[in-house]
């Protein structure tokens, strides 16, 4: 594909690199693929995704030990309360998450973790309190959220169409994001035949397909084996280092050392 270097360069500039530097990197990257006698699209994957990857890698090295400064606010909850009739599910929740940060929502079963995430996604309205949020958001529910009789590729097409992405680009983006989770979708297999863990990977990819700046994840690793679990957290850190914000509902306390904020909703309401 001949316009790969051009698209790569455009994306680098969009991600905030100096135009000259972006051009140099683009020429070099094309030459690197040439060393291997490979097509850049094949060798590095879709241009816009490799650009994000490269920028994230370079950003890590610039700040070496300490991470990138937290970016602009992506999500701000103030005094968010949710009542269903008499039952109070959430009371006065405050949370601010910036670009480049990961926030974990923890608490006992039934304490309103999923409700809070649905409020952040805009699927449920809070009873009181204010929510400020950037527009582009990706949501990964705990279960469901896929159509059993469609294949993974068809899901990429469908969710791509929802976001205004052309089918071919949606499919190649989906395949690449899947590969980051060590998953290669099989062409003709309906989703209902996939294992629970693989379906969760599809769920994650679908939440991320349209390149949102804020990711809302509801225990997205259920059914993952150990390797996939590590891939998942690595991916969370890649998102973070690329300046995105991540909010993840979890009950696994040993992961909390890797996150910036912990919101403990306490016991069941």
């Amino acid at each position: 594909m001949n316009d790969w270097p051009h698209r790569f360069e455009t994306e680098l500039v969009r991600l905030g690199l100096q135009p000259e530097r972006a051009h140099r990197l683009s020429v070099e990257t094309a030459a690197q693929a040439g060393e291997h006698a490979a097509d850049p699209d094949h060798f590095f994957g879709p241009a816009h995704l490799y650009a994000r990857h490269l920028v994230a890698e370079l950003r890590v090295s610039t700040f070496e030990e300490k991470r990138a400064e937290a970016g602009r606010v992506m999500l701000r909850l103030a005094g968010v309360t949710k009542r269903y009739r008499r039952r109070t599910v959430l009371a006065g929740v405050d949370l601010t998450v910036r670009g480049g940060e990961v926030a974990a929502i923890v608490g006992a079963n039934g304490c309103g973790k999923s409700t809070l995430l649905r409020i952040c996604a805009g699927l449920t309205a809070p009873t009181s309190g204010t929510v400020q949020r950037i527009r582009r958001v990706g949501f990964v529910p705990q279960d469901g959220g896929t159509a059993g009789w469609l294949t993974a590729d068809e899901h990429f097409t469908l969710f791509g169409a929802a976001a205004g992405i052309a089918p071919r680009k949606a499919r190649s983006t989906g395949a690449h994001l899947a590969s980051l989770l060590a998953w290669r979708p099989t062409a003709a297999q309906p989703v209902q035949e996939l294992s629970g863990g693989t379906r969760q990977k599809l769920n994650l990819v679908l939440g991320e397909l349209h390149g949102p700046d804020l990711l809302l994840l509801d225990e997205p690793y259920q059914g993952f084996d150990q390797g996939s679990y590590l891939d998942f957290w690595r991916q969370v850190h890649v998102w973070r280092d690329a300046g995105r914000a991540v909010v993840v509902v979890t009950h696994l306390l040993h992961e909390l050392q890797h996150v910036d904020h912990v919101l403990d909703l306490g016991g069941a309401a």
């Binding site: 990706g138 959220g145 896929t146 159509a147 469908l158 969710f159 169409a161 929802a162 976001a163």
Partner: peptide, 20 residues
């Protein structure tokens, strides 16, 4: 009915209700 799980996610990704 079988699309109840998918539809809200399509909305979040940017689709309109009329489109879905």
């Amino acid at each position: 009915n079988s699309a109840r799980g998918v539809d809200p996610r399509l909305r979040i990704s940017g689709a309109s209700t009329a489109g879905i």
